[in-house]
Design a protein around this nucleic acid. Structure first.
Lengths: 333, 333
DNA sequence: CCTATCTGAGTAAACGTTTAACTAAGTATA
DNA sequence: TATACTTAGTTAAACGTTTACTCAGATAGG
C-alpha cells in the first residue's frame, strides 16, 4: 500500500490540509515547527504525492503531448529533445506519439491525449493532412504547431522556419559556385514545407537569371531510399545534371550512396545540398552542405510557448519564424 | 466546460453507472436500446472520458515511463519506437524521459514518473550508475530493464543482447579476413555493455591464436567525436594498425571521418567494424560492417513484457537475451 | 476590560470516474 | 399462488488530493 497524504497527516498529528499546504509551498501561514514535522514525516515515509489526484481537482496534469510523424526520422529526435528539455524545466512531462503520417493514427492519438487530459499538444502534423476532421475541430486542448503548419485549426502558437528563404539561399549559393544544371528532389508537394522549398528553388533561378527549370523538379517523399532511387535513375538515363538540391538530408544521403556506387565524385562531378542539418550531415564524407534548421530550438520554443499559453501569460510571441543557416561543407565546391 | 459522464447520463435518461458500463464494454447486462441511446448521446456530444478520474479508482493509468539516456543518440529512436508501438498496441501511452546519463536527473525523473502513477517503467540505466540510491530501492513500480542491466534493483524483466558473443563474432570475422592489428575503441568500461564487448574482443583473439592485445584497447565514450579524435591520434602517432573494432557505430563513423581526412581508404587501408547497426550504417559509403542489435525488437519486447507483468499474466519470459547479427558491408574486405 | 483583527490550523465539498451492493420488475419453478 | 431466480438498471461509496470557508485563540486598540 502506498502512503497517502492522510497517513502523513496522522503521523504528523495535523490535518491533511496542512500537509497539502506544505507540499505545495503554500505554507506562508504554517509555523516552522509544524512544517518541519510534516517534512520529516514525509521524508521518513518516502511519501510521493499522487499527482493524478491533484489533477482531479486542479484540472491540470502538467503533461504535454508531442505528436510527430516518426521519432525514427533523424529530423525529430533533436526536436523532441528540445521539447522535452523545455517541458522538463517547467515541471512538465511529455507523452510521445508517433503518427507515421497516418491520419487515422493521428486522430486516435489525439483522442488518447485528450482522455489523459494533457494540458497542451505540440504538433507536427502529418504531411498528408489536408483537411480537418470533426475530431480536430472540436479539440479544446491548446495546440502549438511546429515545423509544419496546420491550416484550418485554431492554434495557440506556431513555430516554423523560413523554408522558402533557406532554399533560396542554398540554390543561390549553388548557382554562384557555377552549378547550372540543378535538379531538385523534393518532398511530397502536398506539404507546405516541400512547396516552400521548391518556391525558393525557383526564385533563386529567376533572380540569378538562370533558365526556368520546372522539369528539374523530381517529386519524392523525404526518404533516403527515394533519394537513392531517383539519383540512380538520373545517372542511368544519362540525364545531364551537375548538382542536386535535396528536399532534406535523408534524400541527400541517399544520393550520396547512389553517386558512390556509380563512381561519381562529390563535389567534383556532382554538387549536393541538403536541408535540415541532421547529425549525420557533418559526419559523412565529404561533409554535406545543407540548410540548417534549428530543430532543438524549435522544440524548446514550442514547449515554452505552450506552457506560457497554459499559464495565460501574455506578452509571449504566438508566432515564430526561425531563420535557417546555410552550412557550407565539402559536398559543394 | 467539458462534458462529463454525468451530463451524458442525464441526456440519455439513465444513471452514470449505466453510461460507465457501456463505455467500458461491460454492457452484457444492458439492453440494445439503452446502449444505443447512450452511444448516440456520447457521439452527439463528442464526449471524451476523463481517464484521470478513472485512474483514481482503478489505480491504473495505462501509462508507461521510458527512461533512456538521450533520444538524440541514434541508437535510441528505434528502441523508443519499438516501445511506443508495443505500448500503443495494448492501449498504453508513453512518457519520455532523457536522463543524459545524469544520476540526479535520472532520480528526479523517477520521482516524477511515480508521481504520475505510471504503471511501469522501461529503463535503460545511465552508464554511470553503479550504486542504487534509496529512492531506487524504495521504488515499487515495476521496472523492465532494456539494453543495460541494473544491478542491485529488483526487476520485473530484463532484455539484453549478447554483447560478448556479438563482439566475438565480429572480431573473429576481422581475423578471418586477415586483419591482425586490430584496435578496439570502446565505450566507458564502467558499463557492462562495453565490458562485454571488450571481453568478446579478447576471446576472439585467444581462440584464433592471435597475440594478446591488451594495449590495443582505447577506452572512449560512445561518441563520434571520440572515435574521430582517437583515430586521428592513432594516425598521427603512426601507430601500426590495420583495423578498428569500434564500441558502437557512432565511434565508427567518427573514425570514417578521420580516415577520410587523412586520405586513408576503407577498407583497403583500414577495415572498420561497428556495433549497433544504426540507420546510417547502411547509408554511409562504404557501408559499415557492424554488429546489428535488434533495437526495435528490444523496445517492443520490453513493452510487451512490462504490460504482461502489469496484467499479472504468467508464462511470460522475464528475461530475454537477444541475438546480434553481423551485417557485412563494405568497410571490411 | 471589551471588541476587532490577525494567525495558524482544521472541515468538508468537490473533482469524474468505477464498482460492489442493492432493487424492482419480470420470468420460471414447484 | 407463492417462491426463487434473472434481468436491467440504480445507488452510493471510494479513489487522494486542493481549497474556500470556518474557527479558536492570541494580540492589539480604545
Amino acid at each position: 500500500m502506498k502512503v497517502t497524504i492522510k497517513q502523513i497527516a496522522e503521523l504528523a498529528g495535523v490535518s491533511i490540509a496542512t500537509v497539502s499546504k506544505v507540499i505545495n509551498h503554500k505554507d506562508q501561514k504554517i509555523t516552522h515547527q509544524t512544517r518541519d514535522r510534516v517534512l520529516e514525516v514525509i521524508k521518513e515515509q518516502g511519501y510521493i504525492p499522487n499527482r493524478i489526484a491533484s489533477s482531479m481537482v486542479t484540472k491540470r496534469t502538467k503533461t504535454l503531448g508531442l505528436m510527430i510523424p516518426d521519432i525514427t526520422n533523424p529530423f525529430f529526435p533533436e526536436l523532441a529533445r528540445g521539447v522535452e528539455d523545455g517541458a522538463n524545466e517547467m515541471g512538465y512531462t511529455l507523452i510521445l506519439c508517433n503518427s507515421d503520417n497516418d491520419l487515422q493514427k493521428e486522430e486516435s492519438y489525439l483522442e488518447m491525449l485528450q482522455e489523459k487530459m494533457v494540458d497542451g499538444i505540440i504538433f507536427t502534423a502529418s504531411s498528408r493532412r489536408t483537411t480537418m476532421s470533426p475530431a480536430f475541430l472540436r479539440l479544446n486542448t491548446p495546440v502549438v504547431s511546429v515545423d509544419r503548419e496546420i491550416e484550418g485549426l485554431r492554434l495557440e502558437g506556431k513555430i516554423t522556419v523560413d523554408n522558402e528563404k533557406g532554399a533560396f539561399e542554398a540554390v543561390c549559393y549553388l548557382i554562384d559556385k557555377g552549378y547550372r544544371k540543378i535538379y531538385h528532389i523534393s518532398g511530397p508537394l502536398s506539404s507546405k514545407t516541400a512547396k516552400d522549398r521548391y518556391a525558393g528553388f525557383l526564385r533563386a533561378h529567376e533572380e540569378k537569371g538562370v533558365l526556368p527549370v520546372e522539369e528539374h523538379l523530381i517529386e519524392g517523399n523525404y526518404t533516403s531510399t527515394m533519394g537513392y532511387d531517383h539519383t540512380i535513375r538520373l545517372i542511368e538515363e544519362s540525364v545531364d545534371f551537375d548538382s542536386l538540391f535535396c528536399g532534406n538530408d535523408l534524400i541527400a544521403l541517399g544520393a550520396y550512396k547512389a553517386l558512390h556506387e556509380k563512381n561519381m565524385r562529390i563535389p567534383e562531378d556532382i554538387g549536393i545540398i541538403g536541408f535540415d542539418d541532421i547529425y549525420m550531415a557533418e559526419i559523412v564524407s565529404p561533409g554535406l552542405t545543407t540548410v540548417r534548421q534549428p530543430s532543438y530550438t524549435m522544440g524548446y520554443k514550442a514547449a515554452e510557448m505552450m506552457i506560457a499559453c497554459i499559464k495565460n501569460k501574455d506578452g509571449v510571441r504566438k508566432e515564430w519564424v526561425l531563420e535557417t543557416k546555410l552550412m557550407i561543407r565539402g559536398s559543394t565546391q
